[in-house]
Design a protein around this nucleic acid. Structure first.
Lengths: 214, 214
DNA sequence: TCGCGTCTACCCAGTTCTGGGTAGGCCTCG
DNA sequence: CGAGGCCTACCCAGAACTGGGTAGACGCGA
């Protein structure tokens, strides 16, 4: 790799600790320049217009304007900038949302500094970067298309979850113990990469698992 | 009211305690005859075919086949029978579901015996009976049509609930405390007569509160 | 027959939600 | 100015969910 200008990076995260830490770490690398930092997506956009970063490292969870929504704004206003999402969560939902909104990368906050640097280098070079667990989630999603991977019993449980039943009610309805209902619920979440009940419900509605309560 | 045959009532409830208690109480009334009892909706249908009840008093929460789903079966197979739902819950969802499926009444399990007897008499006479809180819920629903009654802030919270955020995450996102997020969530449920997160999500999707996460 | 998937069931500790409250500050409308 | 709605925030105790496990029973297919 020939000597060339530093990679200009804009950091956006509403946790000052993360922001400062990241900045300090990244600045130990000669080929990376932290061109600006912001605590909110809107502020990040403002600063971005001034500093014209090549890479935007943005937290996915932020007050007012979520990182995911902000991706599109960045792509509209700063088309040369490539956006990498930073997230605590490896939920498939966040990941695929990010990708569909145009993120060039998605890395988990618990990865090593080296990996973050790699991500910055890669996306600055026009590539995309996804940390390992993230890649798995995307692969899983692709495999999922066409047929959903749920067992019949899991579909039963999912249907009842959508109907708003608690584990206990599900257990009663199906004639099993609530412990088993819990296990099924856990397996559903694990299998689908969805952490929340809300996500399960949307998954079910999207995939026609449930006919809709009438 | 002239002397006439007893009102034939079929009781369906998967809690033997409720079933027996109800039976014992109802049989102290001369003009009511408990023609049969069942612990499951299917069994209730079987027995119903034999005893031809005028009134079916059915629990709304039952294993295998929910009371709500069973209403239609009764209306198809035993059109002369009028179905009254018995429920622990005054949730608007249950109530309107019941009504839409053709229930002739909806009473809460915590009402007095007299009220249950009144309900039986009323529906046997061709009327409909809804216990007080239930009626409120239906009225509320009617008023709700056309415009939803949520404040802007409540819509914010609802949107985030649909996105699967916890109270804590909602609080972070909106820059409020989780206690406040909880309050909003509680108010939403109370206002909409929806007890579960699942119900809130379906409400939001139905009413276009949220654009859908993409 | 062995392995694998499925369904069932339980353990634990920690976190979150639930469903009752109360209450102060702000703004708007009459 | 007073009432009422809205947003905020907190109290509490009990219920429910979460996310790690492990494990037995059953059936199906290699």
């Amino acid at each position: 790799m020939t000597e060339r200008p530093k990679i200009r990076v804009l950091l956006i995260d509403n946790h000052p600790l993360v922001l400062d830490g990241l900045k300090a770490v990244l600045e130990t690398f000669d080929h990376i320049e932290v061109a600006g930092t912001a605590g909110l997506a809107q502020a990040g956009l403002e600063i971005g217009r001034q500093v014209l970063p090549q890479v935007v490292l943005m937290d996915i969870n932020m007050p007012k304007l979520s990182g995911i929504d902000a991706i599109e704004l960045f792509r509209n206003e700063l088309p040369q900038a490539r956006v990498v999402m930073l997230s605590m969560h490896d939920s498939r939902e966040y990941i695929s949302s990010s990708v569909m909104h145009g993120a060039a990368g998605y890395i988990l906050k618990d990865v090593s500094t080296d990996e973050i640097v790699s991500a910055i280098e890669t996306v600055a070079g026009g590539g995309t970067y996804f940390s390992s667990g993230v890649f798995d989630a995307l692969m899983g999603e692709r495999a999922e298309e066409g047929s959903d991977p749920l067992t019949p019993r899991e579909r039963d449980i999912l249907g009842l979850i959508v109907a708003g039943r608690s584990n206990k009610e599900i257990a009663e309805t199906l004639g099993i113990t609530s412990a088993t209902a819990e296990t099924h619920r856990k397996n559903l979440k694990k299998k689908l990469g969805i952490a929340t009940t809300a996500g399960l419900i949307r998954y079910a509605l999207d995939h026609g698992i449930v006919s809709k309560v009438g």
